[in-house]
Amino acid sequence: MGQAATPDRPPTGRDRSPPGAEHEGWARARRARGRNLALLAALLAFIVLIYLVTLVRLGGLD
């Protein structure tokens, strides 16, 4: 029944963590950073575009 492998204390949250949980957390943080940077770049590009559109509409970039 595999009783020999059963710990003699109640399981804690740390025990239930899957192997490589630290790596998983690191990968998650990396993905989140990548997504945030992509969003930031998109927003900055959008702001620049709106600025240029405004200049053109006002006749400043002809």
Partner: peptide, 21 residues
């Protein structure tokens, strides 16, 4: 960012992978 599926005994079981850009 994070979806935690709760198992029947109330323990957090599976975290969905985070979406990338």
């Amino acid at each position: 960012d994070l979806t935690i599926e709760t198992a029947g005994n109330g323990t957090a079981a599976v975290a969905a992978p985070l979406a990338t850009w």
